[in-house]
Design a protein around this nucleic acid. Sequence first.
DNA 1: AAATAAGTTTAGGCAAACCTAAAAAATATA
DNA 2: TATATTTTTTAGGTTTGCCTAAACTTATTT
Lengths: 216, 216
Amino acid sequence: MTFSEENYLKSIYSLQKDSPKGVSTTILAQYLESKPASVTEMIKKLDEKGLVLYQPYQGVLLNKNGELVALKVIRKHRLWETFLAKKLDFSWDEIHDVAEQLEHIKSDKLIKELDRFLGFPTHDPHGDPIPDEQGNVIKVEKKQVSQLVPGDTGTCVGVNDTSSSFLQFLDQQQIKLGTVIEIMHLQDFDKSMTVRIDGRELLLSQIATENIYVKF
Amino acid sequence: MTFSEENYLKSIYSLQKDSPKGVSTTILAQYLESKPASVTEMIKKLDEKGLVLYQPYQGVLLNKNGELVALKVIRKHRLWETFLAKKLDFSWDEIHDVAEQLEHIKSDKLIKELDRFLGFPTHDPHGDPIPDEQGNVIKVEKKQVSQLVPGDTGTCVGVNDTSSSFLQFLDQQQIKLGTVIEIMHLQDFDKSMTVRIDGRELLLSQIATENIYVKF
DNA sequence: AAATAAGTTTAGGCAAACCTAAAAAATATA
DNA sequence: TATATTTTTTAGGTTTGCCTAAACTTATTT
Ligand SMILES: [Mn+2]
Ligand SMILES: [Mn+2]
Ligand SMILES: [Mn+2]
Ligand SMILES: [Mn+2]
């Protein structure tokens, strides 16, 4: 399994939720910052290796094998993110890029020991669940803040956008995992929301409310 | 800097101590488990990049630039080895292979934080000094056990051979860093030595005594 | 000094993972 | 349904890092 193959499988895993009948080469290429022609080549290879289902012109989907490999890479990614945030003083907007490299280190013992060292965490610093060794993922009951209505209250359990700029914005607003958000008002024309957090009132744009997940 | 380039520089660094007028392509190829022709290609590239001094047929040496890069990779390798041994319950014969992968992760912040997390260690689990950020290495006063004579006493400060089999042998004999070794007798015909460790007497072959370093 | 042996470089290839441009297929539009 | 547009694949290149075999240089023998 090369770095590149692992990245393809991980990307297909993420994208196939929104494209359940097949991830197109264009979308995959966009996601991987490469070109459709390159994607076609690689998914043909992954198909021959028995990791994906590929039908020309119809897109690609992971099979059981491929999904397990993808989940193992995601497990490593999220364990490393947890390590960086909990043990090394990285902030949650800095961990992703380094974890993109660390997730490809090959050593079963390493990941087992890291898991133990971190106290068998169930979620990473962005609130995403960490798959277990067998590839089982805890499904989290969560809603976007944008789906709540005035009067509702939710507790932040994760984010969708994990870009530095968004995470830094959340830090500025003192929104983190566990933060309680109460919806005060919905501005009709732009879907922005006035919310209350720790007594403070603040305005969140639609983009923001769509990228914050809460449980309730 | 690719993984391969980093491995070449690291290898030249190790080999040039014993070949001060130039590391030959054959020796480098052997060390890297590749072929002389491949080595020639790569050192030409490293020469063009201004990292080594290469004269056809005369071997290769690191210049200041290349040495600094090599030392930074070695620093990362040894910090990761320390992490694996101190924090993750790896034994000293298991750490090297994983560190060979981890040493190529690119992140200044990561290595700085790791260093702090480990308490700024000066030596790795094999007794080798960890270069600082500027590439300075502490020179350790050390002798091979084979250089001692009966009556001498030394404290183990490192090993030369870091193969699993040798390190596991040392574990079996309960020889580790800090172990005090007293030379009792030198067998003339095969240069094996009878030594005393914690009251126990045991016989070490010449190969063994040449691969254990002590200070005295 | 000449011949032989050993070590090194050059030449020509290969696989992985990219790319651009052209061809082919699928989809949308008139 | 025929045509135009978009998407996807195929064909042909490039770069990196490796290989073998042949050519060349240096070192060692006779
Ligand atoms: Mn991430
Ligand atoms: Mn994450
Ligand atoms: Mn090592
Ligand atoms: Mn070491």
